[in-house]
């Protein structure tokens, strides 16, 4: 197996174009497991660990935060928790301290598992992914268009993920996940919610609830249309919102849980997170964890 270790983004893109058989590796917390379990036998590894451009973040002129694909969960939690609270909450639930030190959002997007914890908050916040190839340059892919199927994403064979872009939270954001263990657990299902009070709009993201992470569009539209943003949350509205979130899921029965339980739990999480966010909103609190 060849081991490619580019030291700049340019080199990385060139290597990607030259060696479509090389598997990118960032933190390796997915890749190494696959290699150990013999699920994958790539001809080469393209190690992105030395690519400096991926390792940091910046604020763009319009205020959007641009976060390199190689930023670990641990750094994201401490460095960006105030601006990206939903994602930071999700990051806090990933694996163990060791995994959070190595694992990255870029890797989560690369793996595109329906259970990946970064996806729901990115969907809810309306993040955009920046992918790039040497031949065609940069493409900006909205989160909701990125997930193509179970563990498949919209990345071309010559493309790499450079960063994700997300506006700092404009209102309360929450992430909730279900696991039968109190830590280190793959989501049985998960839900993320972001309120945009100025726009009178809500964003949602569902995890482990369908072949891909997805948004609950009807629930979002319902809330935008029916909620009274200047009043306390109406019970009936919250209940209907929860139902619509449940209905947006197409879960399966598997060894981690039943489809019925997943639907039920998503409804509970939707109602609870909406309630928390609404309370924050009414209290005038902005972002909150």
């Amino acid at each position: 197996m060849d081991f490619l270790r580019p030291e700049s983004w340019e080199e990385a893109l060139a290597a990607r174009a030259e060696r479509p058989d090389a598997l990118p590796i960032q933190g390796g917390t997915d890749v190494m497991v696959e290699l150990n379990f013999d699920l994958r036998r790539p001809a080469a590894l393209l190690d992105l660990g030395a690519v400096r451009e991926l390792a940091g973040w910046e604020t763009l002129p319009d205020g959007t935060v641009r976060v390199g694909a190689g930023v670990s969960y641990a750094r994201l939690i401490t460095g960006l928790g105030d601006r990206l609270p939903g994602l930071a909450q999700a990051a806090r639930t990933v694996g163990s301290p060791q995994i959070r030190n190595r694992g990255t959002v870029g890797g989560n997007l690369g793996a595109a598992s329906p259970a990946g914890d970064a996806h729901p908050p990115l969907l809810a916040a309306g993040a955009v992914y920046e992918v790039e190839s040497a031949a065609r340059g940069v493409r900006l892919v909205p989160a909701a268009e990125f997930y193509a199927g179970v563990k498949r994403n919209a990345l071309g064979p010559d493309e790499l993920i450079r960063a994700f872009r997300q506006a700092p939270a404009a209102g309360p954001q929450y992430f909730s996940k279900i696991g039968p263990r109190n830590a280190m657990v793959i989501a049985v299902c998960s839900f993320a919610l972001a309120l945009f009070p100025a726009e009178r709009r809500v964003g949602t993201g569902l995890g482990s609830a369908a072949p891909t992470p997805r948004r609950a569009y009807e629930a979002e539209e319902f809330l935008a249309a029916e909620a009274d943003w200047d009043a306390d949350l109406d019970d009936a509205v919250a209940g209907r919102f929860a139902e619509l979130v449940s209905a947006a899921a197409s879960p399966i029965d598997d060894v981690r849980g039943t489809a019925e339980y997943r639907r039920h739990a998503l409804g509970v999480l939707a109602r609870r997170t909406l309630t928390w966010a609404w309370n924050d909103h009414r209290k005038g609190a902005g972002a909150c964890a």
């Binding site: 806090r92 909730s176 996940k177 279900i178 696991g179 109190n182 830590a183 928390w276």
Partner: peptide
């Protein structure tokens, strides 16, 4: 219950 997965703030 659920720990930092934040399934509840005490509800239920």
């Amino acid at each position: 219950p659920g720990g930092v997965s934040q399934a509840t703030h005490g509800e239920g």
